[in-house]
């Protein structure tokens, strides 16, 4: 009985707190994406005007994000029936956008970031089989100052 109460509490906490935190995070991501829209990030290796480049340096940004209890349960159910696991989609989307934004924050004073690379790795807790749980995204590129 107590087990059931704990389980239901965790699900409720995960659902309400988790979806609140996710909404807040998306709001902050959107605000900062508008703020940094003037700093273009491209995947090309060559700068448009190589002769005008004054300075170049490596910049990076990373984030580790975990999924909430409710979504983890939904994903486990999805594993039985198959189909899109939307809860993981939003987790990884948030992590990628956040990592790129942090990289842009680290590129203070730069005019352009070229050769963007994104690296994703899952950090499983206690190495449980098949669990994603939390994901790390690492973004890096070369910041140019004209």
């Amino acid at each position: 009985m107590i087990d059931l109460i704990v389980f239901l509490t965790l699900i409720a906490l995960g659902y309400f707190v988790g979806s609140y935190l996710e909404k807040r995070h998306y709001r902050s991501i959107r605000e900062r994406e508008i703020k940094y829209a003037s700093l273009p990030t491209i995947m090309l290796k060559k700068p448009l005007h190589p002769e005008r480049v004054k300075e170049s340096r490596l910049v990076n940004g990373s984030v580790v994000i975990s999924i909430d209890y409710f979504k983890r349960l939904m994903a486990a159910l999805r594993n039985i029936f198959g189909g899109n696991i939307t809860s993981y989609e939003s987790l990884i989307d948030r992590a990628r956008r956040e990592a790129v934004l942090r990289m842009k924050e680290n590129a203070e004073g730069a005019d352009e970031i070229i050769n963007l690379r994104l690296e994703t790795s899952s950090i499983s807790k206690n190495d449980q089989k098949g669990s994603i749980g939390s994901v790390e995204v690492f973004a890096y590129g070369t910041a140019l100052t004209y």
Binding site: L13, G14, V63, S66, Y69, R72, G133
Partner: peptide, 14 residues
């Protein structure tokens, strides 16, 4: 892991 969100400790560690 219950609430979801960023694991700041791990971000810093990595």
């Amino acid at each position: 892991n219950v609430f979801g969100g960023e694991l700041k400790g791990y971000t810093e560690l990595l």
